[in-house]
Design a protein around this nucleic acid. Structure first.
Lengths: 151, 151
DNA sequence: TATTGTTATACTCTATAACTATA
DNA sequence: TATAGTTATAGAGTATAACAATA
C-alpha cells in the first residue's frame, strides 16, 4: 500500500482524487484566479486595483468616455462605478468634465497619464510573462479558442 | 464619418477602443467569469453554489477527507470552510465523523450522494457544452497551455 | 420613457487574527 | 511546535432598488 506520511492512520489516498481536474472549465477558472492574483500584486505596486487600471486605460484611449460606458465595457454596474471614479478623482488621476446635464466625460490628469502608462506596461509585461513563450501560431489558436466561448 | 447613433453629439468613437482586448490574460479572465456565471446558474437549480458542488465531489471521491484538506485542494481558507461544511451538514448532504481529537472526516449522506450525482452531471454537461466541440487534439493543446501556467 | 449618476443596502468571497483542543 | 476547527471581523466585488436630474 502506497501511502503518504500525512495521514497514515486513515484509509485516505496518498493523493486525494479530484475529478474536476479533468475538466477544462475548472482548469480555466483556476488559471484565471492565479493570473488575477498575480496581476493584482503587480498593479498594487502602483497603488491600483485591476479595475482601477482597466478604467484608466479606457479613459486614456477614449477621452470623455462616461462612467456608464466604462461599466458596460468592463461589466461593472453603474452603481458600482460611482465609488471607483470618485476614488480615482480623489487621487488626482482623472477629471470629470460635464458633457450634458446628466453625463460627465472622464479624462486623465497629467498624473493619471503617468500612472496609467506604468500600469499598462505592468499589464503587458504580466501577459508576456505568462504567454510570451507561446509560438505565434499556438498563441493565435489559444486566443481563438477562448474567444469562441462567446458564440 | 461613421458614427453610432448613441453619442453623435460627442467626438467619442463609434466603438470605444479597449486596448486590453488584445491581451490573452484579459480574455482568459473574462471567459472565466462568463463560464463561472453560467455554471453557477446551472448548479443553482440543484440548490448549490460552485463551491458546494466542488466540495461534494471531493467528499464523494475521498470519503473521510477533512475540511482542511478540501480547503487546500480548492484554495479555500480553513476559516472559510467552516460555514461551508456547516451549511452542507445542515442541509443533510454530508456527515462529520470524528477521526481523532482534532480532525473530522466528511462523508456524503444518501441525499448528498444523489445531489452530488446530479451536480456532477451538470458540471460535466456544462464543460461539454463549452468545450465539447473541440477536436481531441485541439482540446489537449488548450488544456496543456492552461496547465503550463503553473510552471 | 429612457438614461446618467448617485445613495443605500445586502450578499458573497476572501483574508487575517486569535482562540481551543489536540497531535 | 504544528495542525484542525472555530469565531469574529474586515475588505473587496457584485447585486438590486430607489431617487433626482436630464434627454
Amino acid at each position: 500500500m502506497l501511502e503518504k506520511a500525512s495521514h497514515p492512520e486513515t484509509n485516505a489516498d496518498a493523493e486525494p482524487i479530484n475529478a474536476l481536474e479533468n475538466l477544462i472549465g475548472y482548469q480555466l477558472r483556476r488559471a484565471s484566479s492565479k493570473l488575477m492574483a498575480d496581476l493584482a500584486r503587480a498593479l498594487d505596486r502602483h497603488g491600483l486595483t485591476p479595475s482601477d487600471a482597466s478604467i484608466l486605460v479606457l479613459v486614456r484611449d477614449n477621452p470623455e468616455i462616461t462612467q456608464s460606458e466604462i461599466g458596460r465595457l468592463l461589466g461593472i454596474k453603474r452603481a458600482n462605478m460611482t465609488p471607483l471614479s470618485a476614488s480615482l478623482e480623489n487621487r488626482g488621476l482623472i477629471l470629470r468634465r460635464r458633457m450634458d446635464g446628466r453625463s460627465q466625460g472622464l479624462i486623465l490628469t497629467e498624473k493619471g497619464t503617468e500612472i496609467c502608462a506604468a500600469a499598462y506596461q505592468a499589464i503587458v509585461n504580466h501577459d508576456r510573462r505568462y504567454f510570451g513563450y507561446l509560438e505565434i501560431e499556438e498563441r493565435a489558436r489559444f486566443y481563438s479558442t477562448i474567444n469562441r466561448l462567446w458564440e
